[in-house]
């Protein structure tokens, strides 16, 4: 099943993670239409290619986020939502917040 239109979501960064994304705390992005559904896993790959400005290893490790960065989807812990397999819906607000001071 493919999605016809792009997916509009809000990405937010905090705790220092914004430094890697052009020092901007809030990004409104439209994910391009693709085969299947957007999950956090595919979002991270997309972010690495399109949004990350520098030092990708400080944000992404393997296919997931670096340990110490918390992910909240609509203010809820992503661990409760299936982590990488969570299927992103339109207007979702995804917050990446670093707990690594100085990281």
């Amino acid at each position: 099943m493919s999605q016809q239109q792009g997916l509009e979501i809000t990405l937010e960064f905090g705790g220092g993670a914004e430094l890697l994304f052009g020092n901007l705390k809030k990004h409104q992005v439209t994910l391009p239409a693709c085969e299947g559904k957007w999950t956090i896993r595919s979002l991270l790959t997309w972010m690495k290619d399109n949004l990350l400005k520098e030092r990708p290893e400080l944000f992404i490790q393997g296919e997931t986020v670096r340990p110490g960065i918390l992910v909240l989807v609509n203010d809820a812990d992503w661990e409760l939502l299936g982590q990488l397999d969570y299927e992103i819906e339109a207007k979702d607000n995804i917050l990446f917040i670093s707990t690594l001071h100085g990281g």
Binding site: G14, G15, G16, E18, L19, L20, E54, R55, E57, L58, H101, G102, G103
Partner: peptide, 13 residues
């Protein structure tokens, strides 16, 4: 609200 002030090890590997 929080303000991020870089420190010595910011962006260090």
């Amino acid at each position: 609200e929080s303000i991020y002030i870089p420190s010595l090890c910011t962006k260090a590997s």
